[in-house]
């Protein structure tokens, strides 16, 4: 199977440079990194991709059983890294992909040099002695919300997105698939994401890790990010002056600077 086509892999930047792989979270696709990833392509071999089921990935490759848990998504990361035979990889994961990235570094420590977790959460649902920020009912409600929102999407959103005269810079091929997902795929991804519990993985992350935390992140609140940073052995916690769950969109410069500074050793661990 052609992994590069399956995961709609894009590679930029100088050949032979250290690889930097960006993984998107639940909701959209690799275009989430459009304001951040290109900025690293002058000195890194920048790889972006779509998880199977999202964006421009191959719909035929979707396997409901495989992607019912985050293991399937971890496998996607490893598949991409192996297909390009990358080593010494800087892996940048947003939201659930931060945790998927952690799982990937644990599975194949030899391929990864460091991990950047943007807005991570090890578990979204509150547990005894642990605040995740959500109750089980909240997640059920999200699933309902997804069903309601995806109802009209498959048909209605595509023309709305493509025919957007205000932002002509949006690439046609990006917008067409942007945030679009088969409702069943979205539901399964949401379940895999928001019902996951990766707390036991954190102490096993074998590489230096940067935890980037936003202020006022309703999905991964401050204490959740702090918990991740506490549990990952070799970690650096940086609170960004950015709001919301997607700093790579709301504050791309801050996000890029924070990642760049850490990679270049300008932030003390």
């Amino acid at each position: 199977m052609d992994i590069l086509a399956r995961n709609n892999v894009t590679v930029r930047g100088p050949e032979g440079a250290q690889p930097m792989v960006f993984a998107h979270g639940f909701g959209c696709d690799q275009s989430m990194w459009r304001h951040v990833a290109p900025g690293f392509a002058d000195r890194y071999r920048v790889v972006t991709f779509d998880f199977v089921g999202g964006g421009g990935s191959d719909p035929a490759a979707y396997d409901a059983d495989k992607y019912a848990s985050l293991d399937g998504y971890r496998q996607d990361v490893l598949d991409v890294v192996r297909a390009l035979d990358l080593r010494d990889v800087v892996l940048v994961g947003h939201s659930v992909a931060a945790m998927v990235g952690a799982m990937a570094t644990i599975a194949e420590p030899d391929r990864f040099a460091s991990l950047v977790m943007v807005g991570p959460s090890a578990r979204y649902i509150d547990d005894e002695g642990y605040v995740g920020g959500f109750a089980r009912e909240d997640i059920d409600e999200l699933l309902e919300s997804l069903a309601s929102n995806y109802l009209g999407w498959s048909a209605a959103m595509a023309p709305a997105i493509v025919g957007n005269p205000d932002r002509p810079e949006l690439g046609h091929e990006l917008t067409e698939a942007f945030c679009r997902m088969d409702p069943d795929v979205a539901r399964r991804f949401a379940e895999a994401t928001f019902l996951s519990d990766n707390r036991e993985d954190l102490p096993r992350v074998p590489v230096p890790t940067l935890v980037l935390q936003c202020r006022e992140d309703v999905i991964a609140p401050m204490e959740v990010g702090e918990y991740v940073a506490e549990q990952v052995p070799d970690s650096t916690f940086v609170a960004l002056e950015a709001t919301g769950h997607c700093p790579q969109l709301s504050s791309p410069e801050l996000t890029s600077d924070a990642i760049g500074a850490w990679l270049e050793g300008r932030v003390a661990a």
């Binding site: 409600e141 999200l142 919300s145 997804l146 928001f194 309703v218 999905i219």
Partner: peptide
């Protein structure tokens, strides 16, 4: 649930 959808 709506908040998650809002953010994602």
């Amino acid at each position: 649930g709506g908040r998650i959808f809002h953010e994602t």
